Simulated assay, not measured.
Amino acid sequence: MADPESDGQEKTEEPTQKRLEKAKEDGQVASSKELFVLSTLLAGFLLYFGLSPFFATILLEWSSLLRFSGENGLQDEIYRNMGASFTFIFWKSVIFALPLLVIIVLTQMTMSGSINWSTSALAFKPNRIDPTAGLKRMFSVKALVEMLKAVGKVASLIGAAIFVFTSEVDKLLTSQATHLFGGMSRLGDVFVLLIIVFLLVLAIIAMFDVVYQQYDHNKKLKMTLQELKDESKQTEGSPEVKAKIRRLQMTAGARAKQRREAMDQVPSATAIITNPIHFAVALKYEIGTSGAPTILAMGRGHQAQEIIRLGKDAGVTVFSNELLARALFFAGKIGDEIPPPLYTAVAAVLAFIYQLNKGEQVDAPDVELPDDMLFDSNGKSLS
């Protein structure tokens, strides 16, 4: 059945690192119950042998709690021994529980690669109490695999037990012919052999289960092509947005390059129109040519100051007119002729500069601009 969130697409792509990390945050990690059974049984077996030299002492201590002299009151002694019994059981249980806890943690670390604590796994999930979802889980492929695995495990352990008892039947049948401790020793040997065989069988089962659980976990986290594309957009950005950003960057870079190259043309300008500080536009016009004046360079702020400095160093006349400088800056382009609506105003300014450069005493022209050529310092039309 297709995942409803995958829009019918088949999950064929391996999970990304982000998907794996998100699964860990939600408490979804590969886990093998068979590996836990094996590790805890092995740990208990080793603890049994490790603590066996102390069994006699432990039995003596335990038996002392079952003896009552009645010298100080039988009832008080019973209560006292009961309290001591609970303390005895508690601490002896801790001796077994702590190593087993460490083994369980190390086993999970072996499966997932790290200790994973997720509060999301503790959150209430309504689908867990949904009867429909419960029936789907009961009759799913996973449930079938778990059932077959359980049947196989029980059959394997029963077969191992039968094998051990049939191979050791002579020893068990002759135990009654020896003394008590000899018989107990033989039974202990058979018991140890049975545990070892159980461990070997469980190790084989756990090995296959670990491989299957890793495969099943990876299969659940697989992604469709659409999910992969969506995640790529979230982490790296939409390809369309990135392409637009690249275009804007290329455009900005080209403009910056054009302005740097234009700065080299400032010394050859005929005039520089300023407002007088914030904007500067360098114009070039050759008398006798048929074309209109050309904009060599323009800038605002620091760049405007640089244009003015370069022009003054080269002896270019600087003419200050706030509205005309804004109009040329916002309506014109570097390398193009000035906008036609500004022909009259620029012609009057260039004529004034031409006469001024010849040493004539003339008054500055009264420049008038069309209404659609009037801008504020932000480029907004004043009309």
Rank of each mutant, 00 (worst) to 15 (best):
T166F: 10
P131G: 15
A56Y: 07
L101G: 09
Q226G: 00
H302R: 12
T132V: 10
N127R: 03
G311D: 01
T294H: 05
K242R: 15
L374S: 14
V94W: 03
A123M: 14
T12N: 14
K92N: 06
K220G: 03
S112C: 04
V151T: 13
T274C: 09
E231Q: 15
N218I: 02
Q234K: 11
L324H: 02
I245D: 15
D209S: 12
F88M: 11
N275K: 06
L51R: 11
L135E: 07
N81R: 12
A364I: 00
S167R: 12
Q249R: 09
Y343D: 06
L74G: 09
F86M: 15
I338P: 12
V318T: 02
R137K: 13
P99Y: 14
F45I: 06
D264L: 14
K358V: 00
E10D: 06
D372L: 07
P370W: 01
L369F: 06
D76W: 15
L66H: 13
E322K: 15
P340V: 15
M1R: 10
G288C: 02
I205V: 12
D26V: 00
E306V: 14
K149Y: 02
N357S: 01
Q265T: 08
I334H: 07
V266C: 01
L157F: 04
T344H: 13
V102F: 07
I103R: 07
T178A: 09
S268G: 04
A43N: 13
G27T: 04
K222L: 03
L296M: 03
V316H: 00
A23C: 06
R326A: 03
L310M: 06
K33F: 06
F198M: 08
G152C: 00
K125A: 07
T274S: 14
L42V: 08
S112P: 03
L328K: 10
A254W: 06
G237C: 12
K11R: 13
S64K: 13
K136S: 10
I338A: 10
E261R: 04
A297W: 11
A23E: 07
L157K: 00
G44N: 06
F88R: 09
R300M: 06
G183L: 03
A43S: 12
A97S: 12
S39E: 02
L225S: 07
L200W: 05
T12L: 09
K222W: 06
